[in-house]
Design a protein around this nucleic acid. Structure first.
Lengths: 273, 273
DNA sequence: CTATGTTCTTCTCATAACGAGTTCAACTCA
DNA sequence: TGAGTTGAACTCGTTATGAGAAGAACATAG
């Protein structure tokens, strides 16, 4: 909408009205950056050094530059991700990172100091280096998602050692559900892989994100039967699987933007009601 | 994230830093409210009376109350929708409206006057009364979506009489695509219907949103085969179809939150690449 | 009232997709 | 060298799908 559309009973103040004069809202971006390490799904977190929530873990993020050096929201997300990972924005590994908007969180009181509306972004990345802690972050690193004890309700199980600050358990839960859903009907799983990959590597991505094992034969058949999902490079990998087996063939991402038919998660009949 | 997570080179200014002092950003909500009238999909629009974009049409929306009478984002969306439709927030037709967050739009320059970050919401409503124009809105009403000449790229065809202000063509296009996708795998089509409805009425909703005719027999079979999508009331409608035919049976929404199997849009093979 | 055309609902049928399991060769590691 | 593992391709029964047909119930024109 336009900022000057507001209730009729305020129309007399139109010219003088500026919500910033008395109703300040700050805008930040947070990034849910996901990658796969050691066969498991990891998220990029920083440990807070200052109050509030000192000592707890939080998603990387920061203020959107509003007027001075104004930046678009995705640019702010990339900037925060680059600052946190220590990677350059240009010509580096960040080019292969898929970034999409996840949602916006603005409940009053979510930050105890001020009114903050936070635009969350979701990033899918191939394996990236460990971040360096810096600034007011006491620590930073890729944390296994399974170690956070996330609940469906957007909270954390009691007894989880790594507590998440603000409403970041909710944001992260939403990001994980988005990632799981996106793998079903888009080829974004390849964003977790390098330029070339094997079908078993792709299957490992699905298994890490979905958290369950898949039928290798059926997965293989489905991936190859979806037009444009992957295309063969003609090569084979250097060696076989970890504990034996033939050398798998290599593929790269195809030109499909949607998977048809989709690769649906098995056994969701219980979660449907 | 937290507002105090920012680059290390600013950490010296931590205590004194307040982005509102020099970097003001305003937050608004816009609502893409969809309903079905006369068998066609309509969106709620208001015509702007003041510059910028005077005379053009815009999505209803307005500022989020930040600190004084602070409200959550969905509450702000409901409030704007209620103000625009003239319907009461409580105990009225708005209870049956499905509301979900669509996305956030914050490109610099999208509002020529100031930096505005706008959180868009998507509303699915059964038939609602005509709104009353008020305040600085020159006119307001339910506009057939097809009359807006929307393009896939988020613009409008040249020659379209009703021009959309700001980036609202993009927002509306995103909302329509979301609506089309949601009908595939959720029972939200019933949000466009009254408490009880017939399968042909439900099919009319799908046809209006998807913009194509569906095979009546197959649609009927699929709706009844999805567990929890609809449940029979045991009654039949008062009369048959508009031009004849038996009286269809009445159903109400079931308890399913996801459709399995999904009702996929036909003929999307071309849009996949 | 009758005739005509429309619509709801349930079929059939051929094709496509799926889950589960099998087979076999290629490979790693002890 | 042998045992165990894995990639890739296959089978088979079940389920989902698109296209079409059939028949009964109904609205409307005459």
């Amino acid at each position: 909408m336009s900022p000057d559309q507001r209730p009729a009973d305020e129309s007399g103040f139109l010219a003088a009205y500026d919500p910033r004069d008395y109703d300040p809202v700050s805008v930040t971006v947070d990034v849910v950056a996901l990658t796969i390490r050691d066969g498991g799904l990891h998220v990029l977190l920083v440990r807070r050094g200052a109050a509030p929530f000192a000592g707890m873990w939080a998603l990387p993020g920061g203020f959107v530059r509003g007027v001075r050096d104004a930046e678009d929201l995705p640019d702010a997300a990339v900037r925060e991700l680059a600052e946190e990972t220590g990677l350059s924005t240009e010509g580096g590994a960040l080019d292969r990172v898929h970034l999409e908007q996840l949602g916006t969180y603005g409940a009053p009181g979510r930050d105890p100091r001020m009114r903050v509306v936070s635009v969350a972004y979701l990033a899918f990345a191939p394996e990236l280096p460990d971040p360096e802690a810096g600034g007011d972050a006491a620590d930073a690193g890729w944390v296994p998602v399974g170690a956070l004890g996330l609940t469906e309700a957007g909270g954390q199980l009691p007894g989880t050692t790594r507590r998440l600050a603000f409403d970041h358990a909710r944001v992260l839960s939403d990001g994980l559900e988005r990632a799981r859903a996106k793998l079903e009907y888009t080829p974004l799983a390849t964003a977790f892989c390098d330029g070339t990959f094997t079908i078993p590597e792709l299957r490992a991505v699905y298994e890490a994100v979905w958290g369950e094992e898949l039928h290798a034969g059926n997965f293989h058949r489905k991936v190859l039967s979806v037009p444009g999902f992957v295309e063969s490079t003609g090569d084979t990998a250097d060696r076989g699987g970890r504990r034996g087996g033939p050398r798998p063939r290599l593929y790269r991402t195809g030109d499909a933007r949607l998977l048809h038919p989709a690769l649906l998660r098995p056994g969701r009949e219980e979660q449907i009601r």
